[in-house]
Structures are given as structure tokens and as C-alpha cells.
Amino acid sequence: MKLSIIGAGYVGLVSGACFAEVGHDVACVDVDQNKVDRVNRGEAPIHEDGLEALLRRHVGTRLRATRDLAAAVRASEMTFIAVGTPFDGKRIDLGYVRQAARDVGAALRDLGRYHVVVVKSTVVPGTTDDVVRPLLEEASGGRAGVDFGVGMNPEFLTEGVAVRDFMEPDRIVIGGMDERTIAALARAYAPFRNVPTFGTNNKTAEMIKYTSNAVLATLISFSNEVGNLCARLGGVDVVEVMQGVHLARYFTTTLADGARVTAPITSFLDAGCGFGGSCLPKDVKALVAHGEAAGQPMPLLDTVIQINLKQPQRVIEMLERSFATLRGLKV
């Protein structure tokens, strides 16, 4: 398939390089000329293990970068929107998503053939159908479901190992406004055989992404709350507590040969200094804010955030109780 990807950042460029690796023809679009030039030289503008090797292998054949959005869209069968969605503490900023939708819609005007537009950016439930779709229709003069399809395909990538995560996915979630859109997205992911593929509507696909991150954040804050209590009580080792919890059949499975395998999810059931990074804090806060805006407060997730905000200081306080000074201390 011929694909265009709007946004050559962490998600967009990794997706583009990996799609090229499985045989698709990909054009990555970005407004940054320096980034475009570097990609077209086979240089990775971001650090991701294995990314530069993919660029060097496919740039000039199945992969290219460009600033010409209209040409890239019109030459492709499917366009992914993978631009940033910053969070200001109250709501995610859809400015880049809106502009991308307008630009893609304008490129689709008078195209004369069916095209699929897919949101890959992390957006709150309802964004694809209620924001992106109307903008596409307005800018293109066409009608969704007739002239083009609109889909949602959340990413589940971990920074640093995003190439591995894309090439060896644990699941592929495909959202679409109709069966035609879902079928088109399924063709794009056809090279990924023996991977669970889940088709649903756009709003549900958006919620799957947020829920996936929210449950991980919840496990971390739960573990830290238990750890804080163990520290306060004294004589209780939270590491051993969690090791005992992990032994439950809910988390550890005995195979036919007698070997015991512990589920990877248990790595989030260990006490520590809390969660950070570019995804979990932003996504949980955005989901809480979205719930409040919809008239559905989310006190559990709000507490998850509050516990996490206080956890680094709690760790420092525990260290101060155990050591005369923290200067030069290696933990």
C-alpha cells in the first residue's frame, strides 16, 4: 500500500520506517526542513534503537520524507495523522491535529478516488468523529463514508524500544467509522501475522489507548501506597510483600512442563518512586479532565495522580530517616 504519515516525530517516523520494513511505500510529512533532510540522508533525528538502520535500508526506495503534504496525501491510499497533542493541565491541545485535518482535507478535494484518513495521535474519546471528521469534510468538500473513510489506530510504543514494539506488537487496535475503513486498515497491518487484531469504532479505539495507560499508572500508585504503609509500620518488607503477591495464579502461570512464568504486568506491581515519562502522567491527567468535562468525575484516577506527585518526596523522606546525610549517597 501507499501510505502518507503526517508528523515525522517519535510516533510518525517510527511507524513510517516500520511500515516500509514490511513492504509498504511510505512518505513521512513534516514542516521541519532540517528533519526532512536528515531522514532523507538516512539519519535518525531522534534516538530509537534500530530506527537508523531501517532508515538507511529503505530511504530512497520505500521511504522518503517531504514537506509537501498535499502531494504526499494525493499519491497515497491512506494517511495517518501522527502529530503532537500537548497537555496544558486541563485539556489536550488539538491545534496540531486540527491543522493536519484541514490540510489533509484540502489535499483530498477533487481527488476522485476513495482515501482513508487515520488518527494515530493520542486523542481523547470523541476527537476523531467529532473534531477530525467534520474538518475533513469541510476542507475536502466530500462526505465521510462515501469519498473517504475515517479511522483511529492508537499506538502502544515505549520510547527507546519503539521499533521493537511496532515490529513485534502484542495487539493491533483498529478503529473505523465503518467496515470499509476497518478493512482498509486491516490490509495495512496484514504483514503482521499471528497478532491479535481488534476492530472497533473510533471512540472505543481512543478509549482503549487511555485505559491501557491508566491501568498501568494505577498499578504503580497502588504499589507505592502499599509500600508507604509498609515503611510506616516498620518490619514489613514491601519487596517481599509484592513477591508474595506475584506468586498468585492471577500473575504466575504453571506450564505443562512444570515451569512457572510470571506475567510482565507484575513489573508495575513493585513499589518505587512513581511513574514519569511523556505518556502516563499526561494521559491519565487528560482522561481525568475529560471525565470531569463530561460530568463524570474520576476520583480513583485523580488519586492515582496525587499519590504519584507525592511519591518522590516520600522516597526522600524515607532515605532521610535511614541515613545521616544524602550527600553523595548512591541509591
Rank of each mutant, 00 (worst) to 15 (best):
V36I: 15
N40A: 08
R41T: 11
G42E: 06
E43H: 09
A44M: 10
A44I: 07
H47V: 12
L51Q: 08
E52L: 09
E52Y: 10
R57Y: 06
T61Y: 02
L63V: 07
L63Q: 02
R64G: 01
D68V: 09
A71F: 03
V73S: 00
R74I: 03
A75P: 00
A75M: 03
P86N: 06
P86S: 03
F87V: 04
D88H: 11
R91F: 10
I92Y: 01
L94E: 08
L94I: 04
G95K: 08
G95S: 13
V97C: 10
V97H: 02
A101C: 13
R102C: 12
D103F: 00
D103V: 05
G105A: 08
G105P: 10
A106V: 02
R109D: 01
G112S: 11
G112M: 12
R113E: 07
Y114K: 09
V116Q: 08
V119P: 02
K120Q: 13
S121E: 11
S121V: 06
V124H: 00
T127W: 02
D129Q: 11
V131T: 15
V132K: 00
R133V: 11
R133P: 05
E138T: 09
A139Y: 04
G141P: 13
V146K: 15
D147S: 12
M152N: 14
P154N: 12
F156R: 05
E159A: 14
V163I: 13
V163K: 06
D165P: 14
M167N: 10
E168K: 15
G175M: 04
G176I: 01
